[in-house]
Design a binder for these strands. Structure first.
Lengths: 347, 347
DNA sequence: TTGAAAGCGCTACCAA
DNA sequence: TTGGTAGCGCTTTCAA
């Protein structure tokens, strides 16, 4: 391995001179700089980034830990976060905890091999996060709530303002009354919020809450959506259910296929609606009606900005303030496509 | 930041003792070990992984660089590689070069912040790879061919044995004659191989090669597949095309939707076939016929095993030998689903 | 069983 | 403009 020492020796220069030359320090004569650069090329020198970070005492690496890169939902997450991180001139590396492969993620968090992390998976538990979050290593958690120093949970969205989307109301308005709800395996904030909304809305509409209309998918995947929907086929045939709310689009797409496979026509026989707008959702037949956001990048930008500010030991309240308004104005919106049967007035 | 020095000072021990205790070295009395462990906990010590790697002179990190995590195809790639890397007790971190965000990937490669890399994107060019591949940093390239020291291109599969799948033959056998071919934007080995097969097969069948039946998708995404297919609608209506081969499933799925949107029935009006079996492909309607592999994990395992051997400076020919047979036996297989109209004999 | 010291490759301070 | 040197946090001889 070639180091600056080797270059220094070859050129009869000091290591500090070489270092400065390599980094384009203006104190170094242009002439020697060229000399150093040439020697570096000749010797095949490559900078050792580890040594740099160690000496500087900090890195610019943000670690993003997601559940499962093969789940379409996370593709979107990665995309938004990736761009925002680049905007701050930080680096982003991704680790997945699919099938409990948490070794790398845990190692990089517990050994402070990054400047901070964004965690969007349930496979890294609360205790672990609480233990390792520190001023030197702030952590942002998405999709669930954790209370602790140096840990920030996102998004809280409008939980207290109750502006959250009335997906159940929407179905109620369109004269559905036998509404089933399918929860994804991950108890993420979004799913929970939607479930609460479901329960409350039924209650307000003076409809009984029927536990037999609550279903649980094993995971938030197409396959799990397909499987859980299989168990609903009988109820549907017996007319016990006239519509289904899926907590997210991943399971909704699987469910849609299952229904089709069993000869159940969507939306004629039953209406369904998803929960997190995915690119894929408009590519299924019939196109999936679902829930979108008026400002999709919002919470991801907030997460990154907040993390970067924490890493830089800046005042995070400035970030909070900046996003306050955007959060106030944020709305979840129904994306009407083809899986909900809209009755005309009076029909 | 708490370091072993702080622990040593607090306990009136030497740093080396603390280091050894922390690492469970048997030379250290169990008593002092407990002492050290407790002090570490109290002080909130966390190991600095960078310092460890710097001192050891090597890391166990493999960097996987992919084009675009939101492309379903790569979900599969990540999955296979992830598992194999874990099997070797190495760490895997992923970087995406979506929208030319190559900064992180290039930094981690050029500054040797990992032990080696697997590159599956066209956004890191040949020169760059050739420049930084070295005994200290072996690189595996997938999906395209690069010649150079310390760079290994995968998979070559059976290119010379010509066992590669006869997808065109398959269509020909089923009495299609006006076959269009849609190339993905990425000139990956797979697409090229399939295109070559297309050209050769037509030639062997004494059919003219009609350049107006060759189409190019802007990218390998659903959207691009949709767009390119739009430009084919007229030809289809005029009966100039009776079937389409898409180089991969991503564009095929987009294309399928486009056809449906334009009132063209698949497979009644036209037959289509994809190129890389995706989970999603069986979830579209009609389910996409496509190309699968008799041993899907093959090239990914090979890539990882080869890279690990290179990093460990072991003899890679052992790995090569190990996989030789598997490659010999490997076949691409047609997965018959619902998008190709199979005529009965004599029909 | 413990500890002093060297050194991984680099940057930055302070002299020269 | 340059260079000697200290030191980032850690591991690992080699002595004690």
């Amino acid at each position: 391995m070639v180091t600056i020492k080797d270059i220094a020796k070859k050129l009869n220069l000091g290591v500090s001179t070489v270092s400065m030359a390599l980094n384009g320090n203006s104190k170094i004569k242009e002439e020697t700089r060229t000399l150093v650069l040439n020697a570096a090329r000749e010797l095949g020198y490559v900078k050792n980034g580890l040594a740099v970070d160690l000496q500087q005492g900090h890195s610019k690496l943000i670690l993003l830990v997601v559940e499962d890169a093969s789940r379409p939902f996370f593709s979107k997450v990665i995309d938004f976060i990736q761009r925002r991180v680049a905007y701050h001139n930080f680096d982003l590396l991704i680790s997945t905890t699919y099938l409990k492969h948490d070794h790398t993620a845990k190692k990089y968090i517990s050994e402070h091999r990054a400047a901070g992390a964004i965690i969007y998976t349930v496979n890294i538990d609360d205790d672990f996060i609480l233990q390792y979050a520190s001023p030197d290593f702030p952590i942002i958690v998405m999709g669930r709530e954790i209370q602790g120093d140096y840990v920030k949970s996102l998004p809280q969205f409008n939980s207290k303002h109750d502006k959250s989307c009335k997906i159940t109301e929407y179905l109620l308005q369109h004269h559905f009354s036998k509404i089933a709800f399918v929860l994804g395996s991950l108890d993420t904030l979004g799913s929970i919020r939607r479930l609460e909304n479901y329960l409350q809305s039924l209650h307000r509409a003076h409809l009984d809450i029927d536990e037999s209309k609550l279903f649980y998918a094993e995971a938030s995947t197409y396959e799990a959506g397909y499987e859980v929907t299989k168990t609903m086929i009988d109820c549907i045939h017996q007319g016990e259910i006239d519509s289904i709310i899926y907590a997210n689009d991943d399971i909704a797409i699987g469910g849609l296929l299952c229904l089709t496979d069993h000869g159940i026509k969507v939306p004629d026989d039953i209406s369904i609606i998803g929960g997190t707008n995915l690119v894929q959702s408009k590519f299924v037949k019939p196109a999936l009606s679902t829930l979108g956001s008026s400002d999709e990048s919002l919470s991801y930008h907030y997460a990154v900005d907040y993390l970067v500010a924490s890493i830089l030991k800046q005042d995070v309240s400035i970030v909070e303030q900046e996003y306050h308004e955007r959060f106030e104005n944020h709305k979840e919106v129904i994306i009407e496509r083809e899986t909900v049967k809209l009755l005309k007035k009076g029909e």
